[in-house]
Design a protein around this nucleic acid. Structure first.
Length: 483
RNA sequence: GGCCCCUUGGUCAAGUGGUUAAGACACCGCCCUUUCACGGCGGUAACAGGGGUUCAAGUCCCCUAGGGGUCACCA
C-alpha cells in the first residue's frame, strides 16, 4: 500500500500571478491528479511586510479560471486546516523549541545592526558572510534573562563538515558541501516563522509527498533536508521545475505586463490555450501531440518528461495555440464571444453572426475581434492612393468608372444577400470586360477606407446593409471628385 | 566572487552509442483567392568549443566558455 500522493501549491500573496507561478500550479496539480492524489492550496504569508490586499483572491480566481481545483485550501477547508500560514503561527514555535532542546537550534539575540555590520565587513574583505554563532554558547542563565526583555530569533545549527546529497526527480542527484550552509533563522523576531522553516513543518504536517517548486529552491533544499533529518521525518520527493524566462532574458514585470496572467487574459488569450502552452513549456510528451486538454494532461503528464533547462516563453507560439483553439470553436461558440465583445462597440445594429463568420479564421487573440472591425462604425479618413492596386489592375481612374455603376446597380437590387450582391458585381465585371478583382477592389476600399479587411467587398456590403453601403459608395465618389 | 544547475536551428523541443539529427512556432517562397487571413505545398536553419573513452559519440568522462539560479529576521 503506497501513500496517497499529496502535492501543494504554496504561493505567497504578493499581488500577481505570472506564468511561472501558474505553470508551477499546473504541474503540481497534474502530479497529484495523475495518481488520483490530492492537490492542496496553502498560502504562505509569513512575511507580514509584503502582504498585498486582495492578492489571495487573485490566486483563487486564477486557479478557478484554469480549472485547477484544489481539494484542500483556506477557502474550501480540509483535514489539515488552517491552510494559511499566518493562522498557523502558533504551531511553529514548539517545533523550534524541540530543535533547541535536541541541540539543532539556538536562540540568537544579535541585533540587526550587528549582523549588518558583520555582513558589510565580510563584503569588504570579499569573504562569504556567515553568521558567526555569537549567541551559540550563551549559558542557560543568560538566555533566560535575555528572553525576558530582548527580542530574539531562533537559528538552526548547521553541520559544518561533510556534504549532503539528495535526489531530485527532475535534476537527479545533487550534492552540496555543508560548510556553505549558514545558521539560518527559523523563527523571526516578530514571532513568525521564516518560509524556510514553515514550509518544512507544514509540508510534513500536511503529509505532502511531492514538493513541486521552481528550481530557484534547488540550492536551499539541503537546509530543509537537514531540518527533516533533525526531526527524523521522512524526506519527501523533490520535483524542481526549470525556470521560465522571457524574451531577451527579461524578468517578468508587473510594469510591462510581460508574463502576467491577468494581462494575457485581457489581451485576448483563452485560459485553455495558456494552459496548453504552459504545459508544453518545460515538459514534453515525447511524441508529436501538442494539443492537450486538462483531462488529457492528467493522463499523459509525467515527471520524466520535464526538462532541466530553462525555457523561454515565446508569445508567438502562445498566439498560434490560441488561434488554433479559436478555429476549433463551433460557429455558435465563436459567435457568442463576438456578440459579447461587440455589444458595446458597434454603433449600429448589424448582424453579428455574419460578422463572426468573417472574423472566425482571422482571429488569433480575442482582442482582434474589436480591433479588426473598426470600419463597421465609420469609414476613417484614408488616402485616395488606396485605389491603386497593381495586381488588381486598379487605380483612381478605374474607381471613378466602377463606383457610379455599382451605385446604380445596387440601388436597383431587390434582394440584398451575399449571392445577389456577388452576382451583380460579377456581371458588371463581365460587361466591362474587367477581372472580378478590378471591380471588387475599389468597392471594398470605398466601403471600408482600408486596404486590409476581414472579408471582401461582398461580405462587407452584405453586413453593412443596402442603405449604408450605398451611402458609403456615394461618399467615396464625393471624395474622389473633390480631387 | 563561492556553491549549484543548464547548454540540439531565432524559439519550444524529440533523441538514452550506429538516424539523411524528428516535429511544432516564427521566417521565406509558391499555390488558392475580390484584400487580408485560413488552407495546401516547399524552403532556410542546430548538436557551444576542445580533449578523451569506443570499431562507432548529440548521446559516456574531463576541461573551457556562455547562460541561469542561489548565497536575507523574502518567499
Amino acid at each position: 500500500m503506497t501513500k496517497e500522493v499529496r502535492t501543494r501549491f504554496a504561493p505567497s500573496p504578493t499581488g500577481t500571478m505570472h506564468i511561472g507561478n501558474l505553470r508551477t500550479a499546473i504541474y503540481t496539480y497534474l502530479i497529484a491528479k495523475k495518481d488520483n492524489g490530492k492537490f492542496v492550496l496553502r498560502i504562505e504569508d509569513t512575511d507580514q511586510e509584503r502582504l498585498v490586499e486582495g492578492a489571495t483572491k487573485i490566486i483563487y480566481d486564477t486557479l478557478k479560471m484554469f480549472n485547477l481545483v484544489h481539494d484542500e485550501g483556506p477557502d474550501v477547508g480540509g483535514p489539515y486546516k488552517p491552510y494559511i500560514q499566518s493562522e498557523r503561527k502558533d504551531t511553529y514555535l514548539p517545533y523550534a523549541k524541540q530543535l533547541i532542546e535536541e541541540g539543532h537550534a539556538y536562540y540568537c539575540f544579535c541585533s540587526k545592526e550587528r549582523i549588518d555590520n558583520l555582513r558589510t565587513k565580510a563584503e569588504e574583505n570579499k569573504v562569504q558572510f556567515k553568521y558567526d554563532r555569537h549567541c551559540l554558547n550563551l549559558t542557560k542563565e543568560e538566555i533566560t534573562k535575555k528572553i525576558e526583555n530582548e527580542p530574539y530569533v531562533i537559528r538552526q545549527l548547521m553541520p559544518d563538515t561533510g556534504e549532503l546529497k539528495y535526489q531530485d526527480d527532475v535534476f537527479g542527484t545533487l550534492s552540496f558541501d555543508n560548510t556553505i550552509l549558514e545558521d539560518q533563522v527559523l523563527i523571526k523576531s516578530d514571532g513568525f516563522p521564516t518560509y524556510n522553516f514553515a514550509n518544512v513543518i507544514d509540508d510534513h504536517l500536511m503529509d505532502i509527498t511531492h514538493i513541486v517548486r521552481g528550481s530557484e529552491y534547488l540550492s536551499s533544499t539541503p537546509k530543509y533536508i537537514h531540518l527533516y533529518n533533525a526531526f527524523k521525518w521522512d524526506v519527501p520527493t523533490f520535483v524542481h521545475l526549470p525556470l521560465i524566462v522571457l524574451e531577451g532574458g527579461k524578468k517578468i514585470s508587473k510594469r510591462t505586463g510581460d508574463g502576467i496572467v491577468s494581462i494575457l487574459i485581457n489581451n485576448g488569450y483563452l485560459p485553455e490555450a495558456i494552459l496548453n502552452a504552459l504545459a508544453l513549456l518545460g515538459w514534453s510528451h515525447g511524441d508529436e501531440k501538442e494539443f492537450f486538454t486538462l483531462d488529457e494532461l492528467i493522463k499523459e503528464f509525467g515527471i520524466k518528461g520535464i526538462s532541466k533547462s530553462p525555457s523561454l516563453f515565446d508569445e508567438a507560439k502562445l498566439r498560434w495555440i490560441n488561434s488554433e483553439y479559436i478555429k476549433n470553436m463551433t460557429d455558435e461558440q465563436f459567435h457568442t464571444i463576438v456578440n459579447e465583445r461587440l455589444k458595446n462597440v458597434l454603433t449600429q445594429k448589424l448582424d453579428t453572426k455574419k460578422i463572426a463568420k468573417i472574423l472566425h479564421k482571422r482571429t488569433e487573440v480575442l482582442t482582434d475581434i474589436e480591433n479588426n472591425v473598426d470600419f463597421l462604425n465609420e469609414v476613417l479618413e484614408y488616402d485616395k492612393e488606396l485605389y491603386f492596386h497593381k495586381k488588381m489592375k486598379c487605380d483612381y481612374e478605374v474607381a471613378v468608372i466602377v463606383l457610379p455603376q455599382v451605385i446604380s446597380i445596387f440601388e436597383k437590387l431587390t434582394s440584398w444577400d451575399h449571392d445577389a450582391i456577388y452576382q451583380s458585381l460579377v456581371n458588371l465585371a463581365n460587361n466591362l470586360e474587367y477581372k472580378n478583382g478590378k471591380v471588387m477592389w475599389p468597392v471594398r476600399v470605398a466601403l471600408t477606407g482600408k486596404s486590409i479587411t476581414p472579408g471582401g467587398a461582398i461580405d462587407i456590403a452584405d453586413i453593412l446593409g443596402k442603405d449604408i453601403t450605398i451611402k458609403r459608395l456615394k461618399d467615396a465618389m464625393d471624395k474622389l471628385e473633390k480631387n
